[in-house]
Amino acid sequence: MLTIRFDELGLRPDDRVLDVGSGFGRHVYECARRGARVVALDYAADEVVETRDTLAAMVEQGEITPDRLIGVLQGDATRLPFPDDTFDVVITSEVLEHIQDDVAAISEMVRVLKPGGRFAATVPAWSPEVVNWKLSDEYHAPKSVGGHVRIYTKTELRAKLRTAGLDVDGYHRAHALHSPYWWLKCAVGPTNDDHPIVVKYRSFLEWDIIEQPASTKVAERVLSPVLGKSSVHYATKRDDG
């Protein structure tokens, strides 16, 4: 399930891509399939291991060539271990809402991006996220596993991206059908994955991802501008030199 639209990102073959907070690698896999040379970075060791294993399996199965994979490593988004102007594309998906010092993280991502390079960030959209916070303290408690520390408005995130040196030039929302799932989870407890209602709705989402029926594609297209769980922003690094 991809949140970023790669036609808006402008990804090109042989682009060097950094995915900050790559999780289990869904976007970095797609970048590699499209011919980019990828680096995946995440704070969680288990996700780093799984992403590395999956990319290795993709090489073994001939889905990507070995030169597409630069590295998979554990690291801190506020202290990226790369020189300035290293990457053609930097993406970060559903990460910034977890980071206390998001301004430092954004600054680091822009630092390692080449002038003229492309940037994409996705965060939970304001209105669905407000419902989640009202339904569950555990969902957003900073000390909980995966807790969210802030709710972004569109204006706030765009202002932070501009201040860091980016020209923001694209926006959309995604995953409308996922908003009710998270409302259900927050209502019964974010870690209560075995609740019958949660299990049933998760099965529906898994079916939708696999089958991709026309009916849910239409529903997503119609509902996402209002109910989309993710807010997706695209930008280009200014060349001030």
Rank of each mutant, 00 (worst) to 15 (best):
L2A: 07
T3Y: 13
E8H: 10
L9H: 02
L11W: 03
F24G: 10
F24M: 12
G25E: 03
E30M: 11
A36N: 11
V38Q: 01
D46I: 09
D53C: 06
L55G: 02
A57L: 15
V59L: 00
E63S: 12
I70V: 14
G75P: 01
D85H: 10
D88W: 04
I91M: 07
T92S: 15
V103W: 07
A104R: 06
A104G: 06
A104N: 00
G117V: 06
T122V: 08
A125P: 07
A125Q: 01
V131E: 07
D137R: 15
Y139H: 12
G147I: 11
H148S: 03
R150N: 04
T153G: 13
K154D: 03
A159S: 14
R162E: 14
G165W: 02
G165T: 00
G170I: 03
H172A: 08
S179L: 07
S179H: 09
N192Q: 13
V198L: 06
Y201A: 12
L205P: 12
L205R: 14
I209T: 15
P213S: 00
A214Q: 12
T216K: 09
R221E: 15
V222T: 13
V226H: 14
S231E: 12
K237E: 01
D239R: 02
D239W: 00
D240Q: 10
G241W: 02
